[in-house]
Design a protein around this nucleic acid. Structure first.
Lengths: 126, 126
DNA sequence: GCGTTGTGTATCACAGTTTGATACAGTAGA
DNA sequence: TCTACTGTATCAAACTGTGATACACAACGC
């Protein structure tokens, strides 16, 4: 479920943060649910456990996870009740959309196709 | 038109590459059109000109720009006729979409709103 | 032709970031 | 309370991004 690619130019921590956020947003990880320990997950992914611990801490600072010394890490109840202002979030999403449209056009994929892909992804979402 | 943010965590080169790609994809820069020299653009953006030169080279390696020693840099004719396989491009776009849906859900923005934002961006595209 | 000016290229050095190693400290449960 | 398991803190090595600066090629005016 949670994956990283050692070859990617994106840092391991960023990949972990993104991957875990996606798991939470998609419902693969529910509020309250425990995550594997940093050491255990790092073993599965074949990276250093400190890297996982750092990703956990970053997600905690963003209000997604609950992390405490000596205890298991879990998804924060309320991870899905954002505290960031909507306007900013929307601006952020717009930037992402512009980026996708850029990639699509440069790759010769037309915009109706992108719309369709969005619809598909939405219905694939749990 | 081309902008960078020195405060951003994204590297200057990546920002430039993204920004220029967007300009090409949106038609603000047309195939054949000359870009400002690295030194000139760097002056406008208040960064080192070597950084701009590096972004130009990266875009050249991706087939977007035509760069040659001693000559002005321009948008490659055929920048919009991609040579990357469609299947790969679509996978790439899907990843981008998943990322946007993740951000939306975590920010409490619902999916119909995302669809609408996409429609808006598409119609705003030149 | 030839010099001047403008362009991108190459390479080195410094700074910041990412990752790994390892010692530490808190928690839970037998 | 002891053990096994959590996350935390901190230092060092490797890597990456950026800047400085010397170089080489092209265009243009004389």
């Amino acid at each position: 479920m949670i994956q990283v690619d050692t070859e990617s130019s994106e840092s391991l921590i960023d990949q972990l943060v993104r991957s875990i956020k996606q798991a939470v947003a998609s419902g693969q990880l529910s509020p309250g649910q425990e995550l594997p320990s940093a050491r255990q997950l790092s073993g599965d992914l074949d990276i250093h456990w400190n890297t996982v611990a750092r990703a956990y801490r970053q997600l905690a600072s963003e209000g997604i996870l609950f992390v405490a010394h000596g205890r298991k890490t879990c998804v924060r109840k309320g991870a899905l009740q954002s505290d960031t202002p909507k306007a900013e979030a929307i601006k952020n999403i717009q930037e992402g959309i512009r980026d996708i449209l850029t990639r699509a056009r440069l790759a010769g994929v037309d915009f109706p196709a992108v719309s369709m892909l969005l619809k598909e992804e939405i219905s694939a979402w749990k």
